[in-house]
């Protein structure tokens, strides 16, 4: 079955899988190909996507999951509020660095902006 995990910002994961395990307010459930059409609200926790012997884990803070289709064309769509690959433990650090870089760029832009304004004001003030 085709599984896609989509966050508000982007498609986080898409691929073929045998089983997906998630948790609704009423408890944990697993979806296999051919499951009766299903729509569930998800609570925060780990979502497991299994295919063969491999398993991908995603940490979500909430979302909604829809499973539907026929035996031959079955798909699961998970709209996650936030989804991050559980293997990616340094995300917080990465985020922090990204924010820092953005802050620096903004400061640099402001400096350049001031410089440009000064340069543009120069001729009007009669200097040079």
């Amino acid at each position: 079955m085709n599984v896609s995990i989509v966050s508000p910002e982007k498609k986080v994961w898409e691929g073929e899988a045998d089983m997906i395990v998630a948790r609704s307010p009423e408890g944990e459930f697993a979806i296999l190909r051919g499951h009766i059409p299903f729509l569930a609200a998800l609570v925060s926790g780990v979502v497991k996507v299994k295919s063969g012997s491999s398993e991908d884990r995603f940490v979500i803070t909430g979302g909604v999951l829809e499973a539907s289709g026929t035996m031959n064309d079955y798909h699961v769509i998970l709209l996650a509020d936030d989804a991050l690959d559980a293997g990616d433990l340094t995300r917080d650090e990465a985020l922090r660095r990204m924010k820092e870089k953005e802050r620096q760029e903004r400061a640099e832009h402001e400096r350049v902006e001031a410089e440009l304004r000064a340069a543009m004001a120069g001729p009007q003030l009669g200097r040079d």
Partner: peptide, 27 residues
């Protein structure tokens, strides 16, 4: 249209989706 199983009730799911819809419009 397939008949879906909802967990929890559709109304509850809908109420949960609304704020997210708003957030998404802003995004």
């Amino acid at each position: 249209k397939p008949s879906y199983v909802f967990e929890p009730e559709p109304e509850e799911i809908f109420d949960g989706l609304l704020p997210r819809y708003l957030e998404n419009t802003v995004l």
